[in-house]
């Protein structure tokens, strides 16, 4: 066990964990932020996507020992009131079915739009291909990303 001070959603948090504990489980078990989801644990489904210094990252693949000093953003901290343009677009298009993958999809999409505010269909597909939606809401996700891209608040 070691003690870490992590900056999560703008706040510093102190916690104890084994150094190899993936951030996914630090968030879910230690910090009790459960919006970040477990899907595969091997970086293949994208359900656990968070932002590390603004970059979309699979939290199941990053040990807690590697994130000190970095700014960690989870779905709970993407916006104060759930009104990030991507979240708003998700609601407008009514994307979710079961909803389990959507936090990861939203975090991935928000990071994409952060680096490319007007992505083409192909750029969306290639950026989002690591995020599985088992219910098959892919066409709605693409539509929502385009809706968010057209939001002047972005």
């Amino acid at each position: 066990m070691a003690t870490y001070t992590l900056k999560i959603n703008g706040k510093n948090q102190q916690l104890e964990a084994a150094p190899d504990t993936p951030m996914l489980w630090v968030l879910r078990d230690h910090v009790k932020l459960v919006g970040t989801k477990y899907g595969c644990g091997v970086g293949m489904c994208g359900a656990c996507t968070i932002h590390l210094d603004g970059v979309a990252t699979r939290s199941c693949q990053v040990p807690v020992s590697a994130v000190e000093g970095k700014s960690i953003t989870t779905i709970e901290g993407l916006s104060e009131n759930g009104d990030h343009p991507v979240q708003k677009a998700w609601l407008e298009i009514d994307v979710p079915q079961c909803g389990y993958c959507q936090a990861g999809q939203i975090m991935n999409a928000a990071a994409l739009l952060n680096s490319n505010s007007n992505p083409s269909d192909q750029e969306i597909e290639s950026a989002m291909d690591g995020n599985i939606c088992r219910c098959g809401t892919y066409t709605r996700i693409k539509k929502a990303i385009k809706t968010a891209a057209s939001n002047p608040e972005l």
């Binding site: 709970e76 998700w90 979710p96």
Partner: peptide, 13 residues
């Protein structure tokens, strides 16, 4: 709209 839409997109338990 999905009655749980807001909770889903904000990562509520």
């Amino acid at each position: 709209k999905n009655v749980e839409g807001s909770k889903i997109v904000t990562g509520k338990p």
